[in-house]
Amino acid sequence: MTLQKNQQNLSDWVNQYSDILFRFALKRTNNEESAKDLVQETYLAAWRNVEAYDKTIPVKAWLFAILKNKLIDYYRKSSKNITEELLEDITEKYFDADGHWTKSAYPIEWKKADMESKEFYKILQKGINGLKQIQANVFVMKYLDDMSSEKICKILNITPANYWIIMHRAKIQLRSYLEKNWINQ
């Protein structure tokens, strides 16, 4: 049976799979609007390429493959302004001239153990969303998509040294954000 380019197919696919596609995209963009746009682009691409669809693959897997490609484009396109990002050393506000923690940035002990609840994940999502886009992207690519640093550098067209600086800045800020907005609440 060939897939028909018809309205019924499109609405079936949207009704069946858009929520799981949306959740997948939301965890990676940490932004509802971007996630929704990516899902829409996925269905548009599926609609346009329905004749090329390989029937040995389930529709769901096919849609996910399209979405993953769209996400790579999203990471790449949204990782602009690398030079600007590298010039501004945000770690300066955490350390004094001698490299000691500034008093206001002293890490505190985390007594609250819960870091696996839905409430925590919402805060984590906000924290990642609050990072500079390129920092958020490297963090997500590494820890959610489980990509190697080589692959991330290739996709974003950055050097290993720059990748490492960006990742370090992402982590130092995210830790501080979580301490203020989760641990200390």
Binding site: Q7, D19, R23, L124, Q125
Partner: peptide, 29 residues
Amino acid sequence: ITKSSKKYEAAVLEDNLSQAQKSKMISSI
């Protein structure tokens, strides 16, 4: 944090699109 981020990836969170958003998606395509 990195451990929790991996769990976040695997967690099932009930973020859904509304029926209105879905209909709009279909009609705009």
